[in-house]
Structure formats: C-alpha cells, structure tokens
C-alpha cells in the first residue's frame, strides 16, 4: 500500500517533470514561433541569427534575461514587486494541472492518465486560478510605483473582472452538455462530435473572452506599449520580466489546450494517436492567436468595456437559456 503510494508519487513527479519541461520548452519556442510568424507576416525573416533559422533564439533570450541586471525601482514596494511575476508564472503553470492531454497510457501495467490530476471540478479550478493570475499583474503594476505600471495594472484588473463573467457564462452550456465539471469528462463527452459544432456561439464567446483574459492583441490594453510604455511590467527587467513573459506564453498554450478540450474534442480524432491530435488542435489555436496579433489593431478601452458588458454577457446569457431549453427539450 505504501509502496503503491510511493510508486504513484514517483510517477506523478516524473509526469510533472516531463510536463513541466515540455511546457516550458514549448513556451520558449512559442516565442520563437511567434516572432518567426510575425516576421514572415510582415515580409521579414524573424529571428535568424542564433542558430540555424534562429532556433537557438530562446536560449539566447534566456541567457540574456538571466544575466541582465535585475533592477528594482527605488520607491517600489519591494516585496510585492519581487513577488508579482512569480504569481503570474505560477498561476499559469497551475492551471495546466487539470488539462488532459491524452486518454491515458498503460505503462508496466499501470494505467496512467495523461492529465496531472483529474479534478472533478477542474473547470471551476481553471476559472478560479485564471482570476488569481490577475493579481500578479495588478500587484506588479501597483508595486512598481510608476504611473504607467499602475495604469496597466488597473486596466488588467478591470479587464479581468469584465471578461471573467462572459468567459464563465460561455462555459455553462459546455457543462450543461457534458454534465460534468471534470475536463476529462468534458473531453470524453465530445468523442463523437466536438462541441464547436453544437455550441459555436459559446466557442466564439469563449475565444473572445479568453483572449481578453490573457491580454493578447487586440485586448492588450494593460501593456499598451504606445500609451503606457509596457504597462504593468514597465519597471521589470531581467528574469523577472522573463517570468511575465513566460506566464503569457504558457497561458497561450493553456488557452489552446482549453479550447481544444472544451470545444474541439480534446485528444479525440481519427487515425492519429490522441496526443498528436491534442497537440495539433492546440497548435491551430495558438497559430490563430498569433495570426490575430499580426492582423488586428488594439481596440480602444471604451470599446473593450462595451463589448464585454453590453455584448458578450447578454449573448452568453441568451445562449445559456437557449441551450438549456434545447437540452431539456431533447433529453
């Protein structure tokens, strides 16, 4: 029993390590991918100096970020200032704990689920953590003691509050259809037909709200470079800045995974192994995000708020009602 427990623990640690390494590597290379893609979309090369095709660019960035001086503004609230980037990075990593990336494998007779932990309230866990991650931004912005950072932090908080609601609401129909909060269950509920086909409205609402949640273009108002310098992370440098960055790119992967799980049927798919399907779906979403960044301009702040409160929430509510009616009707 104890051995079992120890073995399970060892497996968990190994799993965690593998996932973490992959996740960080992917996040790092996502930077490379994004820069490369943005470059090409702008008829440039993108990074091509460090290594072949610039493949060593993430490494170079890492070296640079680590060796760079870590400055703290004189009047900053030091403790919080140092803590904030950690919050962002940590929360992003934590969310991934509930994301299933495969149906599970059997190794040495043991069935290992390809999810770190299959919480039965995984969806609520995600919502909760994604709300906490904004603390990192708000705290970082406030602790910097810089007007740009503060504005960026405030914007981040306000934006989170505004878009948390439609995001949550847009997932209600998904839960209604899957009849579970567990992400594994939700995935399995789509083995025949991904929810995107039954819930396109939910999909779009979630996509928009999630974009705003992770503060990506066209919703990157908290860091709006041309207005606020770099918003909440204006004052950060070195690896602390790197953590903010890391958080952002992990969040991108998470967003891809969540969309894959909620709407695209997770690892389900014909012919190819499930893990490949999963990665493919995540990849498509991530590519779309980068594509959006290369295409859309940043929206104005009033537009952001208008869209969130006056458009997305009513539609999400309506969607719940309609879905509910249909579910009741068909069952």
């Amino acid at each position: 029993m104890l051995l079992e427990w120890i073995l399970g623990f060892v497996f968990l640690i190994v799993k965690l390590t593998i996932v973490l390494i992959i996740l960080l590597t992917v996040a790092a290379y996502l930077v490379w991918v994004e820069r490369k893609l943005l470059g090409r979309i702008q008829a440039r090369y993108g990074p091509n100096r460090a290594g072949e095709f610039g493949l060593l660019q993430p490494l170079a960035d890492l070296v640079k970020l680590i060796t760079k001086e870590d400055t703290v503004p004189q009047e900053a609230n030091k403790g919080i200032f140092l803590l904030a980037p950690g919050v962002v990075g940590l929360m992003a990593l934590l969310i991934f704990a509930v994301v299933p990336f495969g149906s599970g494998v059997t190794l040495w007779g043991r069935s290992i689920p390809l999810v770190i932990t299959d919480l039965n309230v995984g969806l609520l866990f995600i919502l909760a953590l994604s709300s906490i991650s904004v603390y990192g931004i708000a705290l970082g912005g406030w602790a910097s003691n810089s007007k740009y950072s503060l504005l960026g932090g405030i914007r981040g908080a306000a934006q989170m509050i505004s878009y948390e609601v439609p995001m949550g609401l847009s997932l209600v129909p998904v839960v209604m259809l899957a009849r579970s909060f567990s992400l594994v269950e939700i995935t399995n509920a789509q083995s025949a037909r991904p929810f995107i086909f039954v819930q396109p409205v939910s999909f779009i609402l979630f996509l928009i709200a999630a974009l705003a949640e992770i503060k990506r273009i066209p919703f990157d108002l908290p860091e709006a470079e041309n207005e606020l310098g770099a918003g909440y992370h204006t004052e950060y440098s070195g690896m602390r800045f790197g953590l903010f960055f890391l958080g952002e790119y992990i969040t991108m992967i998470i967003l891809g995974s969540l969309i894959a799980v909620f709407f695209l049927g997770g690892w389900h798919g014909p012919l190819l192994p499930p893990i490949i399907w999963f990665l493919l779906k995540v990849g498509i979403i991530v590519f779309t995000l980068i594509w959006f960044r290369a295409t859309f301009p940043r929206i104005r702040y009033d537009q952001l708020m208008n869209t969130g409160w006056k458009v997305l929430i009513p539609i999400a509510l309506l969607n719940i009602v309609v879905t509910g009616a249909l579910v009741l009707g068909t069952s």
Binding site: L37, G39, R40, I41, Q42, A43, R44, Y45, W291, F292, A294, T295, F296
Partner: peptide, 13 residues
C-alpha cells in the same frame, strides 16, 4: 484582414 496577413505569410521576405 486575416486573409491579407495570411497571404503575406507565404511571401518571400
């Protein structure tokens, strides 16, 4: 807009 950026993606830098 999306179409335009996609088109350029295929171009030579």
């Amino acid at each position: 807009g999306l179409a335009t950026t996609l088109k350029i993606l295929s171009r030579k830098p």
